[in-house]
């Protein structure tokens, strides 16, 4: 299985950012069997990275690997959509 390389863009430490981070880790741990690497990027700290990736809305999750590249916008509370966005077949049925 390919290793997942994920970037999560947030803007500051807001409740929305916190929610996105915890949702992301929950999904990764449940679905990726430890095969993932997550980078959290705060737009306020690293605006040049946000510029490069043309981030407008936050939170935004970018799946760099495996190909193809995907973008998922929102606090990742809609798990079904997140998994579809990541091209993951849901294994456990329920999180």
């Amino acid at each position: 299985m390919n290793k997942y390389l994920l970037k999560l863009y947030i803007t500051g430490c807001t409740p929305q950012s916190e929610r996105a981070i915890s949702n992301l880790y929950r999904i990764c741990e449940a679905e990726m069997q430890g095969q993932f690497e997550v980078q959290i990027i705060d737009v306020l700290q690293s605006p040049e990275l946000a510029e490069k990736d043309r981030i407008i809305a936050t939170p935004t999750l970018i799946k760099d690997l495996p190909q193809p590249l995907r973008r998922i916008i929102g606090d990742l509370s809609d798990v079904e959509r997140v998994l579809r966005g990541l091209d993951i077949e849901q294994i456990h049925g329920q999180l």
Partner: peptide, 17 residues
């Protein structure tokens, strides 16, 4: 590049940029 919306968001990143 297809984008998926999965939850609440805002344009904070745009404002910051």
């Amino acid at each position: 590049e297809a984008e998926v919306i999965a939850g609440a968001y805002d344009l904070g990143a745009l404002l910051a940029r």
